[in-house]
Amino acid sequence: MVIRKFDHDVVFLSDTRLLKNRCLNLKYVLNMMGCLTVDFTNDCSGLLLFWNNNVSVDLLSYSPRHIDVIVESPIEKFHFSGIYGYADANLKFKTWELIDQLSISSYLSWLIGGDLNEILSNNEKQGG
């Protein structure tokens, strides 16, 4: 499994389609110390944030579309937002509104990860 192979300190997963109890089992399988979960809903398919004991994580906010935290290690502290963007073209503006709202929650260096469901041009797209 990639997560074990590279020994990441923080891992964000989106579109998990997992219930909370299954997510907690995965935490132990991956040998992670902490876990935040957002269960899947009709609108969104679930979010997970894992971290190991090399870092501490402080939750700022969450929704079915994001988990926003401050991550602190012995050498750095930064703002992380894991996002699962809207796939529907008519709702994509909501993803960017969310990013705009999250941008004001910290003065620290900011890392955004996840699936924004955005492409720069149609040649990046595969499938329907």
Score class of each variant (00 low, 15 high):
residue 127 G to S: 02
residue 119 I to F: 03
residue 90 N to R: 14
residue 31 N to Q: 11
residue 122 N to A: 15
residue 102 L to R: 11
residue 65 R to S: 12
residue 65 R to N: 15
residue 26 L to C: 04
residue 22 R to S: 15
residue 98 L to V: 06
residue 106 S to W: 02
residue 93 F to I: 11
residue 99 I to N: 08
residue 115 D to R: 04
residue 74 P to V: 12
residue 104 I to A: 12
residue 40 F to P: 13
residue 84 Y to A: 04
residue 120 L to K: 07
residue 65 R to M: 10
residue 35 C to P: 05
residue 25 N to A: 11
residue 30 L to Q: 07
residue 74 P to R: 09
residue 127 G to P: 08
residue 42 N to G: 15
residue 20 K to S: 15
residue 65 R to F: 09
residue 31 N to M: 06
residue 91 L to K: 10
residue 118 E to C: 11
residue 114 G to W: 02
residue 71 V to D: 07
residue 8 H to E: 14
residue 80 F to S: 09
residue 60 L to T: 08
residue 90 N to D: 14
residue 89 A to D: 11
residue 87 A to K: 00
residue 125 K to E: 06
residue 114 G to N: 08
residue 71 V to P: 03
residue 59 L to K: 12
residue 41 T to C: 07
residue 41 T to H: 08
residue 64 P to M: 01
residue 115 D to T: 05
residue 94 K to A: 12
residue 108 L to F: 08
residue 74 P to F: 10
residue 94 K to Q: 13
residue 15 D to S: 12
residue 116 L to C: 00
residue 53 N to I: 05
residue 71 V to H: 04
residue 14 S to W: 02
residue 77 K to N: 02
residue 117 N to T: 09
residue 41 T to F: 01
residue 59 L to V: 10
residue 127 G to T: 05
residue 8 H to K: 06
residue 50 F to E: 03
residue 82 G to N: 05
residue 81 S to E: 01
residue 59 L to S: 09
residue 65 R to P: 02
residue 26 L to N: 08
residue 69 V to T: 13
residue 37 T to W: 12
residue 109 S to F: 13
residue 22 R to M: 11
residue 116 L to W: 04
residue 40 F to L: 01
residue 31 N to P: 00
residue 6 F to M: 10
residue 86 Y to A: 04
residue 13 L to M: 15
residue 110 W to A: 07
residue 67 I to R: 03
residue 65 R to Q: 15
residue 128 G to C: 05
residue 56 S to K: 12
residue 78 F to W: 14
residue 86 Y to D: 09
residue 64 P to S: 03
residue 91 L to N: 10
residue 28 Y to C: 09
residue 95 T to M: 02
residue 107 Y to N: 15
residue 107 Y to S: 15
residue 73 S to V: 04
residue 47 L to H: 01
residue 99 I to P: 00
residue 67 I to Q: 01
residue 50 F to M: 07
residue 47 L to R: 00
residue 35 C to D: 00
residue 63 S to P: 09
residue 24 L to A: 08
residue 67 I to M: 05
residue 70 I to Y: 03
residue 55 V to I: 11
residue 37 T to N: 14
residue 22 R to K: 14
residue 8 H to I: 02
residue 74 P to E: 06
residue 8 H to S: 13
residue 118 E to W: 00
residue 76 E to L: 14
residue 78 F to D: 01
residue 40 F to K: 06
residue 85 G to L: 03
residue 5 K to M: 14
residue 91 L to D: 13
residue 86 Y to K: 11
residue 112 I to A: 07
residue 100 D to F: 10
residue 3 I to Y: 06
residue 117 N to D: 12
